Amino acid sequence: MGELTKLLNDAISKSLADAKADSCARFSAHLDGLIRHITKEELSSIEIIELLHHESLKFHSAGFTY
């Protein structure tokens, strides 16, 4: 039973690491999209702050917190 537990723990650990890496890659891509939007639209600093605030609210409403 000990070996099975170790194998399951290893599989869970790998799955969690993979999920974390995927989340980081998706968040990074999202930030890249925001940067492209900010640059293309030549947003002012106030508009950038409003955009970031809106994005923050979207993450919080989806259940993501820090």
Rank of each mutant, 00 (worst) to 15 (best):
48 I>H: 08
5 T>H: 09
17 A>K: 12
37 H>S: 11
27 F>T: 00
31 L>A: 06
61 S>Q: 14
17 A>L: 12
13 S>H: 11
54 H>W: 00
46 I>F: 02
62 A>L: 15
10 D>Q: 14
46 I>L: 11
52 L>R: 08
4 L>M: 14
26 R>N: 04
59 F>W: 13
46 I>E: 11
9 N>T: 07
54 H>Y: 09
22 D>T: 13
65 T>Y: 08
14 K>G: 00
28 S>D: 10
22 D>P: 02
17 A>H: 05
32 D>W: 01
42 E>A: 13
35 I>Y: 06
38 I>G: 02
56 S>Y: 01
24 C>W: 02
40 K>Y: 08
37 H>W: 08
56 S>A: 00
51 L>H: 06
59 F>V: 07
5 T>M: 10
24 C>E: 07
49 I>V: 13
38 I>M: 06
5 T>E: 15
48 I>D: 11
55 E>D: 06
15 S>C: 07
31 L>W: 04
32 D>F: 05
43 L>T: 07
16 L>Q: 10
62 A>W: 09
16 L>A: 12
19 A>Y: 02
51 L>D: 07
21 A>H: 01
56 S>C: 00
34 L>R: 09
3 E>L: 15
7 L>W: 09
54 H>S: 12
5 T>V: 08
42 E>H: 10
58 K>S: 11
39 T>V: 09
31 L>N: 05
48 I>M: 15
29 A>C: 07
1 M>R: 03
6 K>T: 15
54 H>T: 06
27 F>R: 04
43 L>F: 02
64 F>I: 04
24 C>F: 06
7 L>N: 12
46 I>C: 05
57 L>V: 07
8 L>N: 11
6 K>Q: 13
58 K>R: 12
17 A>R: 10
43 L>D: 10
35 I>K: 13
15 S>F: 07
14 K>I: 01
63 G>Y: 03
44 S>D: 05
36 R>A: 06
7 L>Q: 15
27 F>C: 04
37 H>A: 12
47 E>C: 02
45 S>I: 02
26 R>A: 02
43 L>S: 10
39 T>P: 01
16 L>P: 00
8 L>M: 14
19 A>T: 05
29 A>Q: 15
37 H>K: 13
20 K>G: 00
49 I>G: 03
8 L>R: 12
52 L>D: 08
56 S>E: 03
39 T>N: 14
39 T>E: 14
35 I>D: 13
56 S>V: 00
42 E>W: 01
25 A>T: 07
45 S>V: 03
26 R>E: 01
55 E>N: 05
10 D>A: 15
45 S>N: 12
36 R>D: 08
48 I>K: 15
5 T>C: 09
40 K>A: 03
24 C>T: 03
41 E>F: 06
41 E>G: 06
3 E>Q: 14
7 L>F: 11
41 E>V: 02
61 S>D: 13
56 S>H: 00
22 D>C: 02
61 S>F: 08
2 G>N: 11
61 S>I: 07
50 E>M: 07
8 L>T: 07
60 H>R: 11
55 E>T: 12
34 L>P: 03
58 K>N: 09
24 C>R: 11
35 I>M: 12
1 M>P: 01
30 H>V: 01
1 M>L: 06
14 K>H: 01
63 G>R: 06
12 I>A: 13
4 L>A: 15
2 G>Y: 05
31 L>Y: 05
4 L>K: 15
14 K>Q: 05
60 H>M: 11
48 I>S: 08
10 D>P: 03
66 Y>K: 12
58 K>E: 08
44 S>M: 04
43 L>Q: 11
